[in-house]
């Protein structure tokens, strides 16, 4: 282990940020030192000017580019529309919506088994790992002896949630996901932001993950 460690460091040319440590398991995982210069200008005048510059540039683009683009293309139609959309900085929400990245963390959902039952086995890993203490689970005994345990109550307070995604990381059976790409809804009362088991399952779909992972497991059908 130690020899490969040394090899990785010597092979890496000494440029870029200073490498403090490299994982012995994966050389791509490393601790680097990030040099942050002292903030000399505490009035932020330069930064303000830069920011204003960006705003003005966007304003100019919004004002001028669409017409120019269409004229430059000289053909109109779909292609012009695409160009128009790509160039302009302002999004006409809610008619027009930004496509979120694939890994955007939206509202939670609870995944389902093939028969539509909740996949969660109330192992309490997500409330344990949750830094905001926003998950409440009350376990109960399942009527199915091969499942044993299931949540009687599963509540997530979306106002408390800090959208860190650790619950999804902690889940051992693909029962909770944050891939809905939905925002937390605006609410008038705080309690309305508490998602219960039914609403979380309402967004859920049947998971294709193998319960217990792949390969022969203790619950293989004989």
């Amino acid at each position: 282990m130690s020899s490969s460690h040394a090899h990785d460091e010597s092979a890496e040319p000494q440029k870029g940020p200073k490498v403090l440590a490299v994982s012995p398991k994966n050389p791509n995982v490393r601790t680097i030192q990030v040099v942050r210069p002292e903030n000399a200008d505490t009035t932020f005048l330069a930064a303000t000017a830069t920011g204003l510059g960006i705003t003005i540039r966007h304003f100019g683009k919004n004002l001028l580019l669409p017409r120019k683009s269409v004229e430059a293309l000289g053909q109109g139609g779909a292609a012009a529309h695409v160009r128009f959309k790509n160039d302009i900085e302002t999004i006409q929400y809610p008619e027009e919506k930004v496509q979120y990245p694939e890994r955007y963390r939206g509202l939670h959902r609870l995944m389902l088994r093939d028969d539509g039952a909740v996949r969660c086995v109330a192992c309490m890993c997500c409330p344990t790992v949750c830094p905001a203490h926003c998950i409440t689970i009350v376990p109960e005994e399942s009527s199915d002896p091969s499942i044993e345990k299931r949540p009687a109550v599963f509540e997530i307070d979306e106002l408390r949630c800090v959208v860190c995604g650790l619950c999804v990381e902690a889940c051992p059976c693909d029962a909770i996901r944050m891939d809905t790409a939905e925002h937390a809804k605006p609410v008038e009362e705080r309690w309305e932001a508490v998602e219960n088991k039914a609403s979380l399952m309402g967004r859920g779909i049947r998971s294709t993950a193998t319960q217990g992972g792949e390969g022969p497991t203790w619950r293989d059908k004989k």
Binding site: P145, P216, D220, K222
Partner: peptide
């Protein structure tokens, strides 16, 4: 390293008024 199915036994066996046994 085991790639053969595990031996299956009874789960949630009621042993008495206070204790439940999982034989597996």
């Amino acid at each position: 390293r085991v790639d053969t199915p595990k031996v299956h036994k009874d789960k949630a066996v009621d042993l008495g008024p206070t204790v439940v046994l999982d034989q597996e």
